[in-house]
Nucleic acid binder design. Structure first.
Lengths: 215, 215
DNA sequence: TCCCGAATCTTGTCATTGACAAGATTGCGG
DNA sequence: CCGCAATCTTGTCAATGACAAGATTCGGGA
């Protein structure tokens, strides 16, 4: 890579974020240092401070971006950003109006796909000890991605048994993604794709052997 | 705390581990430093090196201990350490031989309880980027705790649909524990206990509204 | 078109950390 | 009782995060 000669980098913030994401995906969060990222971007050791203030600021920016990307992934392909209702793939009924269970299942598949496609974002998003926990942008982004799962259940998140569904759906997606990412699941199953395995797990929740009573 | 006067601490390894666990539970993994732990234990900055070689050695020791504690928690109260079959609390049948679903449910409850009771261990156990990933003791400990979930399903872990159950059971327990620990779930539910909420989620898997077909 | 100031950098410094080396102390086994 | 391994202490160096002071330049306003 040719050494940079201009004083102004041009897009140092994005460059540093991308360098951090690559490093995290390869070597984990613990490998990140501001000076290392600055070297990689070809700037002085203090240049990142202007864009992120400090190391916690860098991780906060990654977490905020991750929550928004996740929320986008969970709403892609839908009208008014309400969720994957229309056109969603899932074990739902065929009349065009998806059962809530099918919507939750599809959200779970997208959650796991997000984690696999954005491993570094996913690793950082739930590491509040690395972030500025009181950052308003982070709180808003977390709220946005969390609310989507709650909104997917008809009757609101406080209906009977529906809270159990939301907790189960979110937990199984997050747990699967985390354990797959860390290697525990991959070690104990065969060599299929993680998405296929996740769908096996999701079908335990959403497509039981005996179909549930209507309602 | 009175300053230590003897040259030999007596049980420095345990003291450093406990200091690290307290710090992690309070401020997160990122707050740990070997020198900080040494000060807390009243020894010189290089004393920890004898017990752990380096920082990765400290985290590896915590992860190994955690996996064994988790395995112990999941086998407590059973004969021959095979799982919580006899005397387990759960939505199982009453004839003394627990349904596999009830056993998985009870394992999940214990998994979450472990995470809540040992937050620092739980945080470190799945952070391979902090550990010596090739440590044989760590590999064995991970194998032990992971195998328990696989062994709980009759027909072995490769039976039809049973792999989905194991993946779902492990994922929902791990996901719930991680998200609760991080605060995402607590923010979106009321003020019940985490165990009660987990049981709501677990019942979606293991106690569906319509009981599953026999077999 | 020019000027000024904000944005964006560079260089330097200091405290802290991890890792390593050399040496001191002591408890336990032979 | 002695020797050695285990367990420490003191010191050093490179790297890091944070902060300060100053340099450069780009864009907006007069």
């Amino acid at each position: 890579m040719a050494a940079r000669t201009a004083y102004h980098h041009g897009d140092l913030r994005r460059t540093l974020l991308d360098a951090a994401l690559d490093l995290i995906a390869e070597q984990g969060v613990a490998a990140v240092s501001l000076r290392g990222l600055a070297r990689r971007a070809g700037v002085s050791h203090a240049a990142p401070a202007h864009h992120f203030t400090d190391k916690a600021g860098l991780f906060t920016a990654i977490a905020v971006e991750g929550h928004h990307l996740l929320a986008d992934a969970m709403t892609a392909g839908t009208a008014a950003g309400g969720g994957p209702g229309h056109g969603a793939r899932g074990a739902g009924d065929g009349d065009g109006t998806d059962a809530p269970a099918a919507v939750l299942r599809e959200l779970g598949v997208r959650y796991v796909r997000f984690a696999l496609d954005h491993p570094a974002h996913f690793d950082v998003m739930f590491r509040l000890d690395l972030c500025r926990a009181d950052d308003p942008g982070l709180a808003a982004a977390r709220e946005r991605s969390g609310a989507l799962l709650n909104s997917a259940v008809p009757g609101g998140p406080h209906g009977p048994r529906r809270r159990g569904y939301v907790l189960a759906a979110w937990s199984v997606a997050h747990g699967f993604a985390t354990l797959w990412r860390e290697g525990s699941l991959a070690r104990s199953v065969g060599d299929g794709t993680p998405e296929n395995y996740f769908e096996e797990a999701a079908d335990v929740l959403f497509a039981p052997a005996d179909p549930p009573a209507a309602g």
